[in-house]
Amino acid sequence: MTAARSVRAASAGAVAVVLPRAAWACAVCTGQDDAAVSLAILKGTALLSLLPLALIGGLVWFLRRRAREIESARGAFREQESPR
């Protein structure tokens, strides 16, 4: 192997070693305090994961409660109207 080839191979190896490190970098981790950023990311993840479940769950709960209210009102009306 010539000297030039050796240099090229070593350069390519160095790039191959460095590249994965760049891939690990997070686009939002630019600050000094990693703990604060980690906590913020964790909070954000929790918010964005749980909020849709809470909103859809709340809507379903509200609709079920409303359905029960209407059904009980209908039942009371039928009892009132039915001849004894």
Partner: peptide
């Protein structure tokens, strides 16, 4: 519900940016 998710995304991005600022 969809708008709440929009604001949740914006709040999340803001919180991360703010916590990463010196």
């Amino acid at each position: 519900v969809t708008e709440a998710m929009l604001f949740a995304g914006l709040i999340s991005a803001f919180t991360i940016t703010r916590s990463s600022a010196v």
